[in-house]
């Protein structure tokens, strides 16, 4: 990621990037749909599941976890997915449509700085969401603390990277904000199915689980689950996430248009 979006030109003063980030953060705050969808919905679902007594019963079908616990990684993946697939491409496509990027590319600041600023703002939102989900589940609903916090951080970082790059490919492929919305919906709902948002993967036939492990959000849930309840996550889900980040990062760099 750093090699892709590192500010390449030394010409602009250092404070410029901070200014762009500040304005992008203001925009995220003033158009809070993203914050509400990402943080609000996942937190709301967490509270609902936490309040249902039967969801707190350990279930042998879920490998001894309660339904509530099984949903925590899914909700983390959901928050990352919503922000990366909806609230990252949206502004970028509309900036391109309105000529914001074009105008920027006549200044000493490369237009890619806006993209980088978007990544910074969205990543902050994601990290806040993840921290809130985990602390609320522990503090209010008695979930156990993550087994391997280092593994959890790695899993979150890789999941964010993979989903960001998929979001950027959507921003590259969509000419209009409407098209971006369509592509997002087409990608998001199937990906969330394989992440286990609608039905826990553990109760579905084996073949769904196998597919799930190779989808970005499915791999994310697997890596998050492992680091939360077992220990350092195995190489496969981490590798799958890194692979998505690399392949989609390449595609995004190759096909993203500034005009």
């Amino acid at each position: 990621m750093t090699s892709l979006y590192r500010p390449a030109r030394p010409s602009a003063p250092r404070g410029a990037f901070g200014q762009i980030v500040r304005n992008e953060a203001r925009l995220a705050w003033r158009q809070p749909a993203g914050i509400i969808a990402g943080i609000g919905i996942s937190l709301l679902l967490l509270v609902i599941f936490g309040e249902v007594p039967v969801f707190q019963q350990p279930s042998p079908r879920l490998g001894g976890l309660s339904a509530f616990e099984a949903y925590i990684p899914v909700l983390i993946a959901f928050a990352i997915g919503v922000l990366a697939l909806t609230y990252l491409p949206g502004p970028l496509v509309s900036y391109r449509e309105q000529g914001v990027l074009r105008r920027l590319s006549t200044t000493p600041v490369p237009a890619s700085w806006v993209l980088a600023a978007q990544l910074v703002v969205q990543a902050c939102l994601m990290v806040i969401t993840v921290l809130m989900l985990i602390s609320v589940s522990i503090g209010f609903f008695g979930a156990s603390a993550p087994k391997d916090p280092g593994g959890l951080i790695l899993a979150v970082v890789l999941a964010i990277a993979a989903l960001f790059m998929i979001g950027l490919v959507i921003a590259a492929a969509a000419r209009t904000t409407g098209a971006a919305r369509g592509l997002t919906a087409a990608a998001f709902y199937p990906l969330m199915f394989f992440a286990g948002l609608y039905v826990p993967m553990q109760i579905l036939p084996r073949v769904f689980q196998d597919i799930s492990h190779f989808t970005p959000l499915g791999a994310a849930v697997q890596a998050l689950e492992d680091s939360m309840w077992q220990g350092f996550p195995p190489a496969t889900p981490l590798g799958v996430l890194a692979g998505y980040a690399a392949v989609f990062g390449f595609l995004a760099k190759r096909f993203f248009r500034w005009e």
Binding site: S11, N23, R26, L27, R30, Q31, P91, Y95, Q98, G99, V100, R102, R103, T106, T107, P108
Partner: peptide, 17 residues
């Protein structure tokens, strides 16, 4: 870009800034 200032015919800025 440091020495040239530009006004383009079609350029907009984010609505909520």
């Amino acid at each position: 870009h440091e020495i040239v200032g530009v006004q383009l015919q079609e350029s907009a800025f984010p609505a909520k800034l």
